[in-house]
Amino acid sequence: MASTGRGSSRGSGGTSIPEVQASVPAPASPMLDHSFTLQTMLDVKDSVTALRVKTERLIDDVAGQNGKHDKISERITGIESKVTFARGAFWVFTILAGSGWAVALLFIGKWIGK
């Protein structure tokens, strides 16, 4: 008794075809339903809107940091100018004090040498 693969064999040696075909529904595609597409588009729109809001907030935060950076930069520039002035004053004082000391030693040397 050989089976042909088309059905089950019965004791009589023949093949039988089922009388009732199994009813299989057609596969449902989500693209046939417009609500799926609309829902997807609305989700994408919401995601893009959220991304835009977060990007704008990031831009505002960075702009706020630039304002703070400018204030700090101005303070540093002010401190640098004060330090430069103090250095200049130190060198002027050192040169004047050295010159005065040299002049004083010159006069003291002349008085002692007399």
Rank of each mutant, 00 (worst) to 15 (best):
G11I: 07
G113L: 10
S9G: 02
A2F: 06
W111Q: 08
V48Q: 10
G14N: 14
G109L: 11
E80R: 06
N66F: 12
G7P: 01
A102L: 15
I17L: 12
D46T: 06
A28Y: 13
L38G: 03
D46L: 11
V44T: 13
A102D: 11
W111T: 10
D43N: 13
M31C: 08
A28Q: 15
I79R: 07
S47H: 10
S16Y: 12
A89N: 08
A104I: 09
T37P: 01
R57F: 04
L96A: 14
D43A: 04
M1A: 04
A97N: 07
G11K: 11
V103M: 14
S9N: 05
L106F: 08
E56T: 14
V83G: 02
T77S: 13
T4I: 00
R57A: 11
A26Y: 10
L58N: 06
P18C: 03
S8A: 05
F93L: 11
G88M: 04
T4N: 06
M1Y: 07
G113I: 05
M31V: 13
A63E: 13
G13L: 04
S73Q: 13
I95P: 01
L105T: 12
P30V: 06
E74Y: 09
R10C: 00
V92M: 07
L106D: 00
L42H: 03
A104E: 07
K110C: 02
S23R: 09
E19W: 14
K68V: 05
T4V: 00
V44K: 09
R6G: 02
W101N: 12
T40N: 03
G67T: 04
F107S: 00
K82V: 03
V53S: 06
H69W: 08
T15M: 07
E80T: 04
L96V: 14
A22S: 09
A28H: 13
S3K: 02
A2G: 02
H69R: 13
W111N: 11
K45L: 14
Q39F: 01
Q65K: 15
Q65L: 14
S99P: 01
A102S: 15
S73W: 05
S99C: 11
R6F: 00
I108Y: 12
G13C: 05
F107V: 01
K54S: 09
